[in-house]
Design a protein around this nucleic acid. Sequence first.
DNA 1: CTGAATCCTTCACGATACTG
DNA 2: CAGTATCGTGAAGGATTCAG
Lengths: 139, 139
Amino acid sequence: METKQQTHPDIFQANCLSRQVLQLIADQWTPLVIYALEGGTMRFGQLLKRIDGISKKMLTQTLRALERNGLVQRVVYPVVPPVVEYSLTPLGQTLIEPVKTLEVWAYGHLQEVAYAQTTYDQRDQKSLQEEIASLVQQR
Amino acid sequence: METKQQTHPDIFQANCLSRQVLQLIADQWTPLVIYALEGGTMRFGQLLKRIDGISKKMLTQTLRALERNGLVQRVVYPVVPPVVEYSLTPLGQTLIEPVKTLEVWAYGHLQEVAYAQTTYDQRDQKSLQEEIASLVQQR
DNA sequence: CTGAATCCTTCACGATACTG
DNA sequence: CAGTATCGTGAAGGATTCAG
């Protein structure tokens, strides 16, 4: 009884519903799956090929979660071999914009992030070398 | 030499830069940290208290990653006890809008997701019960 | 073809203790 | 206060096999 859901939506609270909902889409693969389904219905195998690097297991898991949350509709045609089609529900469609915004940002700031990374890493590298140098000097 | 970076930004390719950038912000805590820093500079302890449920380790880790990617600036004041302040860089500021879009979505679709979940789970529960019933019947 | 189930490895993460 | 270092555990995820 203690772990009541927050009715007031402070996303900084751990048990806040909006936080939980946010976590549903804040993972490795979910944005990519959403984005892949933006164009319309896709079969399991199509998604598997489209999203390079995802394993069958993760794709299944991600799709199941999306289905459970009402974002994706799964339709099974009882034929052999099986045909299963995935598509965004109306609710899922509303996610396209936020996800696309993210992707546009990622694409739009490639260089800046890459540059920041090398700068940061070189700085680290430099500190490391100075540290080693001072150690050598102590002998 | 084989693992060249994609110059053409197809986010569905595993080695695509934009995909890698996307992954940097698609985790549990990053959106919350960004959102927390939206209001301005915050100290480590403040962030720790504000973001309920995050551990020191994860906060440090998340902040380091954000700093490395040039999204967050870290300023250390050489006083005792130490004071460390975090704030969004100009680049980091550009992430506010995408992140906020996500959070607005999460908040705006609480009910729908919650309802979809219970429906899905009840369906599962029902199938489970039917399965058990049929098993009992077989005796 | 579309999964479910199993095994197994890795590592993400929390807890704890320690430091400047 | 703001971390780092270390350890231990549980969960995530890949590979493989089996099934409808």
